[in-house]
């Protein structure tokens, strides 16, 4: 998606004082922001992977799903906050490079889907920790969702790197 309205919007962000400051300090500001972004990705990736591993039957078998989710939720929320702040900083610095980039748009779509899966598991497991174990169909569906989540997070990392190339 690369509509005229989107490009106009990018241009208006690009002419703000903040954007100009980031562009002027890009040499050290951008890599610093990217390091925080990568470390946060690392935290959220491993946290969701642990939750998905529990659902797929690869660990934490002594703990109910809601407790595993509860344990990793603070890390996920902290990482999400850092990702949002550093992501927005990078967008303000180079709006057209990100917002109008197909890789960025795919990344956001994947991110929303992955978060949706996380919140589905969180809400259902909070209401009933055994919710996903009550029938074979539910077990199967939970595993399918967990696998989808893993694929989406891998896709997010890939799409993120490809923003620089597309």
């Amino acid at each position: 998606m690369r509509t005229a309205a989107l490009l106009n919007f990018c241009a208006s962000i690009g002419s703000t004082q903040l954007s100009i400051w980031i562009q002027d300090h890009g040499e050290s500001f951008v890599p610093a922001v990217q390091v925080i972004h990568i470390l946060s990705i690392s935290a959220i990736l491993i946290s969701t992977l642990m939750i998905n591993a529990r659902i797929l039957g690869f660990g934490f078998s002594d703990r109910a799903l809601n407790l595993v989710i509860k344990r990793f939720s603070p890390a996920i929320y902290l990482a999400l906050t850092c990702l949002l702040l550093t992501g927005v900083a990078m967008i303000i610095g180079e709006p057209a490079r990100s917002l109008a980039n197909i890789a960025f748009q795919v990344k956001m779509l994947f991110l929303l889907s992955a978060l949706l899966i996380f919140f589905i598991f969180k809400k259902t497991a909070n209401q009933d920790p055994q919710y996903w174990e009550k029938s074979h169909q539910r077990q199967f569906f939970a595993k399918l969702l967990a696998l989808t989540s893993i694929v989406l997070w891998i896709g997010i990392v890939f799409a993120g790197r490809w923003i620089a190339y597309l």
Binding site: I38, L39, I41, S42, A43, L45, I46, S47, L49, M50, I154, V157, F158, G160, R161, W162
Partner: peptide, 18 residues
């Protein structure tokens, strides 16, 4: 290759950090 490198690094660092 770079994308796979970044993915491997994030999983490596995240798991080692645990």
């Amino acid at each position: 290759i770079e994308s796979i490198h970044v993915l491997a690094i994030t999983i490596f660092f995240g798991s080692l950090a645990l």
